[in-house]
Design a protein around this nucleic acid. Structure first.
Lengths: 343, 343
DNA sequence: TTGAAAGCGCTAACAG
DNA sequence: CTGTTAGCGCTTTCAA
């Protein structure tokens, strides 16, 4: 009312209204908005002005129908609540915005049924999909990929565009670091059984251990959470590891907490290192030594790969995009001073 | 191929295909899906069976056009990177899923321009909007609300459905707690200038201080982040508060960190309490005493309010929904032992 | 209960 | 460069 722009909500302004007011055909209005080059400059400005005056806004849903381009991308994550996803979501959102796309978020809560349902709803609507840390089988993912352009994040699926952090290098650095500190055995607190990243990390750690002459023990699988880390430590019984490499930061934090309750404190009696360098991993005492994953870059990169593809580029399905990591040494790791270690 | 369900991607199966295969009119197929009651039970099952066989999936975009119901809700947050949002997003996503809706997420990165743009794109597409902790003016929000059903979260705007935590009660509890511990002055580390919640918390703390005969000092505004909390403490100069109440947990954590660097440690030399009880607020040492906001319930409640409204309910615009909070006492607060306090 | 027909708002040939 | 004409896939009167 203040602006005199008052209008009934029941019917929105269409290109027809603008066309009538501008004295041109609807298709011209449409062109003026979708391909500015293809219309007389003067007419175009006039149309834009009138559209502005009328308060016209294009209906993306309507244009999605004939073109098949909805301007939406889906990002499906297993657990929004996990801090790893925050930077990923931000990175993805940023790239999406830059590309003129809108992000649809699906939180599957680690539930396969919810994931299936989400995909069911989202696939017909979006132009592309990013699956982060999906727990589904390669085959299932390929099926989805066959219906829509897709990129998998934090995972490799042959035949599907993949992007992830350099888990191998990361674990190698962990082993080197711990080895340099004099540790001889590393206990790996595993992640979920179905996690691809867990498999990678475990294998890489084993390989590095072999190479550096360190013993590696696996404990798990565990939930990729603080609770999972605590449970893992408790499952250790009387065993007293001097060095722990956890599947991720949450597990590492959980481990330190459980250890703390048993009065064994890092870095003095035990060294623990996480993975991902999530927000908050440096809040605790001691601040966690961890491998920094390029989370933001992963999210950003994933949608960029998708957009490239949507822009007509060939799908990059052969070589996955592997992003560099780096070891962030903080206070949770220190020289091995194992009490029952005789020298 | 394995399933024999192979199909070209270029053209999807429509109700026409199903109609033809089932020997009925397209409209009947449509009815069979949208209003099952209005079609002969047998025909309905047959249609569903055939649709299944053909791999038909309804195109939500196409049905959104004639009905105006896109099945999508927008959640706009100021900073996905802030851990407060994780449970909010989860709660909202859960309720949306239960209501058969899909969530569109917009991260404005605290940038007004991005927020404007996001709204521009999203408003025409979604059926309803949730604005979390928006920094816009009441008037601006009302304008948006006039275009689409909307609920504001963590804020009150008269004339717009609002839902938020009981900031007042929360701050009152903070003051009581600190008062009981013998503190006489509370330094409030404020949030952003434009934050409604900050205003509420500050006022409530002042009121409680008045009531309980505690002195309250305000320091800020500050960014609602760890960095903001550190900066706030640094801005204090030589002043040595015995009790700090922070705008939120991040600020509290930042404050403790800065204080720690000056060798003043909680809870011995200073008590600090946060707000929200975000994930990770108990990771540190000491674990943070804080006011637990019902974050998940806020997200869930917000979409429920929206769905109620979309379902034809009257917009609840008069009395805001205020969710209960509780004080979580952990280790960052303790009895006042102010060195320069003479008794 | 079902079919026929007319759109939802926009785009995309195809002529002119 | 612009107008005309069909649709995109689904819903919804209106008759039958």
């Amino acid at each position: 009312m203040a602006d005199g722009e008052q209008q009934r909500a029941d019917r929105s302004i269409t290109i027809y209204d603008v066309a009538r007011a501008a004295g041109v055909a609807p298709s011209t209005v449409s062109r003026a908005f979708s391909r500015p080059g293809r219309v007389n400059a003067e007419t175009a400005t006039r149309i834009h002005r009138i559209a502005e005056e009328l308060g016209y806004r294009r209906n993306p849903l309507a244009s999605a129908l004939p073109t098949g381009r909805s301007g939406m991308l889906a990002l499906v994550v297993t657990d929004v609540t996990n801090p790893v996803y925050a930077p990923i979501i931000r990175g993805a959102g940023l790239a999406a915005q830059e590309g003129g796309y809108t992000l649809l978020l699906h939180d599957t809560r680690e539930d396969p049924e919810t994931e299936r349902e989400a995909l069911e709803r989202t696939v017909p609507v979006v132009e592309g999909i990013i699956m982060a840390s999906s727990r589904r089988s390669d085959a299932a993912l390929r099926t989805v990929a066959s219906r829509r352009p897709m990129v998998v994040l934090n995972r490799a699926v042959s035949g599907v565009t993949s992007i992830f952090a350099d888990n191998q290098r990361g674990m190698r650095r962990v082993a080197e670091h711990l080895g340099e500190l004099g540790h001889e055995t590393i206990h790996y607190l595993a992640g979920p059984e179905t996690s691809w990243a867990d498999g990678m990390r475990w294998q890489a750690l084993q390989a590095a251990g072999m190479d550096l002459e360190l013993k590696i023990r696996r404990v798990g699988p565990n939930a990729p959470t603080v609770a999972g880390g605590m449970a893992a430590v408790e499952s250790l019984g009387d065993a007293r590891p001097t060095a722990i490499s956890a599947y991720n930061d949450l597990v590492a934090i959980g481990a330190m907490r459980a250890l703390g309750q048993m009065r064994v404190v890092a870095p003095d009696e035990v060294s623990v290192v996480g993975f991902d360098n999530i927000f908050g991993s440096d809040f605790g005492t001691p601040a966690l030594t961890t491998v920094a994953s390029p989370l933001h870059a992963m999210g950003k990169g994933a949608v960029e790969l998708l957009l490239e593809r949507l822009g007509g580029g060939a799908p990059r399905t052969d070589d996955p995009v592997v992003l560099p990591v780096r070891l962030v040494v903080r206070d949770s790791t220190g020289p091995c001073r194992e009490p029952h270690r005789r020298r």
